[in-house]
Design a protein around this nucleic acid. Structure first.
Length: 270
DNA sequence: ACTGCCGGGAC
DNA sequence: GTCCCGGCAGT
């Protein structure tokens, strides 16, 4: 289905008609990506050593090539899976999702060539392409679409206005692949670095690195639940005010000894 | 970010 | 035993 969408996209005269020349990136469009990029080390709270998981081996994780997607991409992916009927005032751009690239071109073929040459290190031979480039760029609508996106939920009669304005940020691998559905089972040596998060959301990228990709399914990143059984042994936090709350950090001398020692408060029991 | 407190180290 | 703190988990 997504392949059909891709096919119809790539054969669209709108996309093939324009020359594959390199356009200079829109100055205002390259800025959205930076806040989305995870700062390195922002998740390094020491939990990475759990289960012997080595962050360095993450690079071999099969879910790695999913670059962080902008909200526009999620909107494109989830809201309207089929090729969208274009308004005349809307210009379609293609943005490279490679980390810290963000290059914007006006044609899909140009973007594919950019990704092949710059990121995948291949020669510009579209005939030999396996389509992997499709996973590294997304389609952007600029113009009235962008300007009215925030208001779309206010138009009750719009047939496509039922798109959720804020889709949950599910980073299910394979679902966030722009413009195509099955991810490439075998990836080249070049891949976008650090596309997976390692926070507590257990969104699949924490699967053990030895998990092999399942050929054909593209769903190698099965969400792996943590096996921290001791976590539910922790008793729920009581709602009584403790010494810290009552006296404040400034008057720490008034705390009970347990609170001073960061133990369970014995003055204000639950 | 703040809070409660477990687990564990230093003495 | 006392004292302290790293770090986790809940809010």
């Amino acid at each position: 289905m997504a392949a059909a969408a891709l096919t119809s996209l790539s054969t669209s005269p709108l996309l093939l008609g324009a020359p594959a020349a390199a356009f200079s990136p829109e100055p205002g469009l390259a800025s959205w990506q930076e806040p989305l990029v995870q700062a390195p080390g922002s998740y390094s709270s020491g939990s990475s050593g759990d289960w012997g998981w080595d962050p360095a081996s993450e690079q071999s994780s099969p879910c790695t090539p999913s670059p962080p997607l902008p909200p526009e991409a999620a909107h494109f992916l989830f809201g309207e899976p089929a090729p969208r009927k274009r308004k005349s005032s809307v210009q379609v751009l293609f943005q490279c999702l490679w980390k810290r690239c963000g290059k914007v071109l006006s044609t899909a073929s140009g973007m594919q060539r950019h990704i092949r040459l710059v990121h995948l290190g291949r020669q510009a031979e579209p005939e030999q392409s396996d389509g992997e480039e499709d996973f590294y760029y997304t389609e952007l609508d600029i113009g009235l679409d962008t300007l009215t996106d925030g208001l779309s939920s206010l138009t009750p009669v719009s047939p496509v206005a039922s798109t959720p304005p804020a889709f949950p940020h599910l980073e299910l691998p394979g679902l966030l692949r722009p413009l195509a559905s099955p991810p490439p089972p075998v990836l080249s040596s070049a891949r976008p670095p650090q596309a997976c998060h390692s926070d507590h959301s257990y969104q699949g990228c924490l699967a053990p690195p030895r998990l092999e990709p399942q050929p054909g399914t593209g769903r190698a990143c099965v969400p792996a639940l943590p096996s921290k059984l001791g976590a539910n042994l922790r008793k729920p936090r009581g709602d009584a005010k403790k010494c810290r709350k009552v006296y404040g950090v400034e008057r720490r001398a008034l705390w009970c000894t347990a609170c001073r020692w960061k133990k369970a408060c014995r003055r204000f029991l639950d």
